[in-house]
């Protein structure tokens, strides 16, 4: 009885699907048979895009060439920059004195930290393989923005009172 019901369901599912004739072979049949047992609704976060096969069907997934400067060295640098921000942020407020050089170093470190942080976000959420154009636009947009902000911080440091002193003045206003 159960098998009769299942085969009817299977037939229905098969005719409803958009598969071409050769795709209704065992792999697809198994997926459809399994789908009949699913009780919860399917809500895919990112449904797969139309697939494209690079090279032949027997080629393995390409492994990108290893590069320490994009991998472990970059990771370590990120951590060193983040860790150096702790004393750089605390020192001027704890010491009560302001050193223009220290303030410039703080600004530069914050800029690098922000840039690599935004870079991590872009790399994580805009995959190169899936959306190559958006990836390129965002990467270069970020580079341009960082140059602009670097210029602005230079202006602020040289013509205004500097970041630490400005925060202090606004905070106690």
């Amino acid at each position: 009885m159960a098998s009769i019901a299942r085969s009817a369901l299977l037939k229905q599912a098969t005719t409803a699907s958009r598969m071409s004739s050769f795709a209704t072979k065992p792999v697809v049949n198994n997926a459809l048979r399994a789908a009949a047992f699913h009780t919860t609704s399917r809500r895919d976060l990112l449904p797969p895009l139309p697939q494209r096969v690079d090279g032949t069907i027997n080629d393995p997934a390409p492994v990108p060439p290893t590069s320490p400067s994009h991998g472990s060295y970059h990771w370590t640098m990120d951590r060193l920059v983040a860790a150096s921000l702790i004393p750089l942020t605390i020192t001027p407020f704890a010491a009560g004195s302001l050193n223009p050089t220290l303030d410039a170093v703080l600004c530069a470190t914050i800029l690098i930290h922000s840039h690599t942080g935004f870079q991590n976000i872009i790399v994580d959420y805009i995959p190169k393989k899936r959306t190559p154009r958006a990836r390129k636009i965002f990467t270069w947009g970020l580079n341009a923005a960082t140059v602009v902000v670097g210029l602005a911080l230079y202006e602020f440091e040289t013509t205004d009172v500097g970041l630490t002193e400005a925060v202090k003045r606004v905070w106690t206003a």
Partner: peptide, 19 residues
């Protein structure tokens, strides 16, 4: 045909569920 079949099969792969 082989390429199309593989592409069709890849569409059947499991996808990460909704957050």
């Amino acid at each position: 045909d082989a390429t199309n079949l593989l592409a069709q099969q890849r569409l059947q792969r499991p996808v990460s569920p909704h957050l």
